[in-house]
């Protein structure tokens, strides 16, 4: 008898997997359906993908989303890397620092989003791409921080001691030893921050000004206007990008060296 196996857990797990993935597969399948009504299957086609490529609003929204995600993820990764280096060893106040770093993760997003909206309007920051980059950077920090911190935790301090023993000063040690050993964590952190920003809807919804729609905001308003096969196609593209990037970051965090 395997003491770890409990009856029904396997069945429930398979059900949960189906629950998690069936809707996604249905969506992907429909995105290749030639029929306009989106529910009646006629034959496979790439029509909708061609259409979204030629849709100027989607192209503009995609561009905005990419600029936003790259800027926010870069800024968040740099900030998170510095914070991870600061919290590497125990010191009084480390727990407090980490709680503050996790704050954007714990708070309900809608509350932070509307609060940020109030602040930006009050101090006169114009809504739009700049405002979104600021807000996204902050909620991306914990996502970038966690993999970098995990990598640092798994890294023995003796490598840096060895480098200093071999005449590298602190800066050279960081450049030649710490960073090369840390980069899978940094890249994983950047990837997760990028995905988080790319997929964000709520914050962008409140902070996007006129003419700076992001892809999720565009999708939301399109759904409100009525379900169309184009939405299926653009949603599929977003899903696939997220899945690929998350798998990449997963692989990076498991990298040995």
């Amino acid at each position: 008898m395997n003491i770890r196996r409990f009856p029904l857990t396997r069945e429930i797990s398979l059900f949960v997997l189906a629950y998690l993935y069936l809707p996604v597969f249905v969506l992907i399948a429909y995105s290749f359906n030639a029929n306009r009504t989106a529910t009646v299957w006629t034959h496979a086609s790439l029509d909708w993908y061609v259409r979204i490529l030629n849709n100027p609003s989607i192209r503009a929204a995609t561009w905005n989303s990419l600029v936003l995600a790259i800027s926010a993820a870069t800024a968040a990764t740099v900030i998170a890397l510095l914070a991870a280096l600061a919290t590497r060893r125990a010191f009084p106040g480390r727990n407090a620092s980490e709680t503050i770093l996790r704050l954007p993760l714990i708070l309900p997003e809608i509350v932070v989003a509307v609060a940020t909206l109030i602040l930006f309007v009050a101090v006169g920051i114009e809504l739009g791409l700049g405002a979104m980059i600021l807000a996204h950077t902050v909620f991306c920090i914990p996502f970038a921080y966690l993999p970098i911190r995990a990598r640092l935790d798994g890294m023995s301090g003796t490598y840096e001691e060895a480098a200093q023993d071999l005449y590298a000063n602190r800066f050279r040690t960081f450049r030649r030893v710490t960073m090369p050993l840390l980069w899978p964590g940094v890249l994983a952190g950047f990837t997760l921050a990028f995905v988080t920003s790319l997929d964000d809807f709520l914050t962008s919804f409140f902070l996007s000004g006129p003419g700076t729609t992001t892809l999720p905001v565009y999708i939301f308003s399109a759904i409100r206007a009525g379900i169309t096969p184009e939405i299926n196609a653009i949603s599929t593209v977003m899903l696939v990008i997220s899945i690929l990037l998350v798998s990449l970051s997963f692989a990076l965090t498991r990298l040995r060296r």
Partner: peptide, 28 residues
């Protein structure tokens, strides 16, 4: 772990939209 984590990282809006397609009138 990867299978459970992936939905966590994919777009919340898109995943809810997928249920909209499944549950709506005339959906399968």
């Amino acid at each position: 772990l990867l299978l459970v984590t992936i939905p966590f990282w994919t777009n919340l809006l898109v995943r809810n939209y997928a249920w909209l397609i499944i549950l709506r009138e005339g959906g399968w």
